[in-house]
Computed example of a mutant assay.
Amino acid sequence: MPAKGLPRILVLYAHPDPEASVANRAMLAAIGRLPHVTVHDLYAAYPDFFIDITFERELVRDHDVIVFQHPLYMYSCPSLLKEWIDVVLSKGFAHGEGTQTQGKYWRSVITTGGAAEAYTPDGYNRCSVDEILRPFELSAMLCRMKWLPPLVLHWARRIPAEERKQHAENYRQWLEAPMALMEEAKYGE
């Protein structure tokens, strides 16, 4: 672990159009200089979608917490992140006989284009964000990782700039002091 006993945190950022993302840019700006956090922009690293699996697995091995930061796309994540999950966290490395992710932490940090009310049983999407993220939670469990509650910013483009700024600050504060949330994690070992 880095100085002060902080866990090493890998932020896997996946946004196919990062210049258009007001909220994610603000979030990245807020966390960019944290010494124990590695921000890895998947779309910048792999515009051709050919993922360097060996390199990515080394990143995973070198970090204690894996943050999956992305917009919610079609009730899931952007396609490159899904490809990353499929090829990097595959059987033999992260599950099955593979134990390289055992005991690590998984946190989804997402933005949505809809209001929070849209993610209710009676809302537009007819289910909660937790229900939508259930496949990711199950993936964490399969990989013997500890699931942390997701950090969600609803209506990312439409909320006032001050709310976006506060959300980015909350994100930075959690990354600076993640231990309390980590102690409440489920699954894992």
Score class of each variant (00 low, 15 high):
101 T>L: 07
68 F>N: 10
16 P>C: 04
160 P>T: 01
146 K>Q: 09
114 G>N: 11
26 A>I: 00
187 Y>H: 14
48 D>G: 07
166 Q>N: 11
145 M>C: 02
113 G>Q: 10
182 M>H: 01
72 L>R: 09
75 Y>M: 06
25 R>Y: 02
39 V>P: 02
61 R>S: 02
20 A>H: 10
28 L>E: 01
165 K>M: 10
122 D>L: 07
127 C>V: 06
28 L>M: 05
56 E>V: 06
151 L>Q: 15
28 L>V: 02
174 W>H: 14
125 N>M: 05
57 R>W: 02
108 S>W: 00
164 R>Q: 06
165 K>L: 12
29 A>K: 15
63 H>E: 12
72 L>N: 08
113 G>P: 08
120 T>P: 11
184 E>R: 15
20 A>K: 14
54 T>P: 02
187 Y>C: 11
131 E>D: 13
31 I>R: 07
126 R>K: 15
119 Y>H: 10
11 V>W: 05
103 G>K: 09
19 E>G: 07
93 F>G: 04
27 M>V: 14
46 Y>C: 05
59 L>G: 13
45 A>C: 12
172 R>M: 03
83 E>W: 00
41 D>Q: 14
134 R>M: 12
67 V>C: 13
111 T>L: 08
110 I>R: 06
144 R>G: 01
80 L>P: 00
10 L>R: 07
37 V>F: 11
179 M>W: 12
23 A>I: 05
103 G>N: 06
128 S>G: 07
87 V>P: 02
10 L>N: 00
158 R>G: 15
104 K>E: 00
128 S>A: 07
180 A>G: 13
66 I>E: 09
89 L>A: 08
130 D>F: 12
54 T>L: 01
160 P>C: 04
